[in-house]
Design a protein around this nucleic acid. Structure first.
Length: 504
DNA sequence: ATAGGGTTAG
């Protein structure tokens, strides 16, 4: 039952043969370069183009030229583009497109294929002079003797078309075409499934999604390879549909489908859990994690840190800390890596518990937990907030002695600390050190510095000049920092004047 | 192939 008539594949089974039309194609010389093909590519192809340069080709001629381009999909595509771009002349025939599609397809350049289709969709049936059913017919026709190859080819080409529709937000058409592919019993690829789920969800058709997933899993239609499911799960997760991926994952696991090389189930779980964390679906992520552990898979610690970071970003600091402590206790092995360590330290800082944060840092160090510049940075922040800037600088020097190279952020943190204590010249020394070490200050560094100077009633024009010399452009944040600094310094009039001048 | 964190805006 069709909701509305979109003539897509309606007569694809009717494989109609057509005699080539006597149209002529003028093939322009290579001089007008094609912007979609990179320069080096273009140059290497130049030789091949000589053959057809400035020739008048009829359709048979075009097809003959295309057969010589079988090993060069980019050349075939640009050849086609050239004919398309030829003002006033006939457009390429459906057979010419079919030939190019087959070439591109045989090289697995699915994205190029979708690209080509986007262009064709935009032209419309009238503009093309043929329908997509015609095109698919023509593509399939060439493999008439080999049913299996035709099936693979048509599955692939029609999947690319589904993706092309989705790409230009013609979701109805994408879903409609997908349904037709299902009816024809071709296999849409994982990418096509992903965009269809996306389209259905966009419509709020969760029932449709459910049906699609269960159809994919039902025994009689389940003929997919593990790779398909892996790709599908990955596609769902990167497109913020991790919950759908998780619904798919469990039955796949129970049916022992994700077992090609033993680690597939672990990889799938990792993707899903990471995806859930990215979408801040932390309860689901935690239960997926338990689920994973229940399968006897030992999760990578990075999954623990993903969940923990989620809680932290959610400002659920104690939840984050409790989570990691519980996991650590349960695992009975060391799960604290530098990422988790910095996350723990940051939770403390964000709760305002700066001395606890620093104590924790020292404890980590005593326990020989590897600490990197991220962890050190949080320790610097804690010390600075406690007003212990000297200790922060000492720790910074110690870090360098440990062989950890400081980055712009480390320097910026310390520069902020110096400014906070009114130690502006030390701040400048650090800036000079940065430049000497080839880690030049960025906009954030300068904002901190400028703000610090102004707050301490120091002349900031030198800093602004330095910024200009280094090619770092002030932003609205810079101005905000200066204005606030002036207010802190009690220079209300100057702040007001600056504010007014910025308004203009 | 699973990959993640820290600095401005007081």
């Amino acid at each position: 039952m069709r909701l509305f008539p979109i003539p897509l594949l309606s007569h694809v089974r009717g494989l109609v043969r057509r005699a080539p039309s006597p149209r002529m194609y003028a093939v322009p010389a290579l001089a007008c370069t094609n912007s979609t093909i990179s320069h080096s590519e273009e140059q290497t192809k130049e030789g091949n183009f000589e053959v057809v340069k400035s020739l008048e080709l009829n359709e048979v001629g075009v097809l003959r030229v295309l057969t010589t381009m079988r090993d060069d999909p980019y050349l075939a595509l640009s050849f086609l583009k050239r004919i398309e771009g030829n003002e006033g002349a006939s457009l390429p025939s459906v057979s010419a497109y079919a030939a190019v599609v087959r070439i591109v397809c045989s090289w697995s350049l699915d994205e190029k294929l979708s690209c080509l289709f986007v262009g064709l969709i935009r032209k419309g049936d009238q503009g093309r002079g043929f329908s997509f059913a015609d095109l698919l017919n023509a593509v399939g026709e060439a493999e008439e003797g080999d049913e299996k190859l035709a099936f693979l080819l048509l599955s692939r080409v029609s999947s690319a078309l589904v993706k092309a529709y989705a790409e230009i937000e013609m979701f109805e058409e994408a879903v409609y075409l997908f349904r037709e592919i299902e009816e024809l019993r071709w296999d849409a690829d994982a990418g096509a499934y992903v965009v269809v789920v996306q389209a259905l969800r966009r419509k709020g058709d969760s029932e449709g999604v459910e049906k699609l997933l269960s159809k994919l899993l039902s025994l009689e239609t389940r003929r997919r390879h593990c790779f398909f499911y892996m790709d599908f799960i990955e596609g769902l997760c990167v497109n913020e549909m991790s919950l759908e991926a998780y619904t798919l994952l469990r039955p796949l696991r129970d049916a022992d489908i994700l077992v090609v090389d033993g680690s597939d189930l672990a990889v799938a779980y990792s993707r899903v859990i990471r995806g859930l964390c990215n979408e801040m679906k932390l309860e689901e992520a935690e239960s997926a994690l338990l689920d994973m552990e229940g399968c006897g898979i030992d999760p990578d610690v990075s999954l623990y840190s993903a969940v923990m970071e989620g809680h932290r970003k959610n400002m659920s600091f104690s939840k984050a800390l409790r989570f990691i402590v519980d996991k650590g206790a349960k695992q009975g092995k060391r799960i604290i890596n530098p990422v988790i360590a910095s996350s723990i330290l940051q939770c403390c800082c964000q709760m305002g518990k700066f001395s606890e944060a620093f104590d924790q840092f020292v404890e980590f160090r005593n326990r020989n937990i590897p600490l990197d510049r991220f962890c050190y940075n949080v320790a610097f922040e804690a010390l600075i907030k406690l007003g212990r800037v000297d200790e922060a600088i000492k720790l910074f020097r110690g870090m360098i002695c440990e062989g950890i190279a400081p980055d712009v952020v480390n320097y910026t943190t310390l520069i902020g600390g110096c400014c906070q204590q009114g130690r502006c010249s030390e701040a400048i020394d650090l800036v000079m050190e940065m430049e000497a070490k080839g880690r030049p200050p960025d906009i954030v560094t300068f904002n901190v510095l400028v703000g610090g100077f102004v707050r301490n009633a120091q002349n900031a024009s030198g800093i602004l000049k330095l910024m200009e010399e280094r090619g770092v452009k002030p932003t609205s944040v810079t101005h905000k920092m200066v204005i606030q600094g002036l207010i802190v310094a009690g220079k209300i009039d100057e702040a007001e004047a600056l504010y007014q001048s910025l308004d203009e």
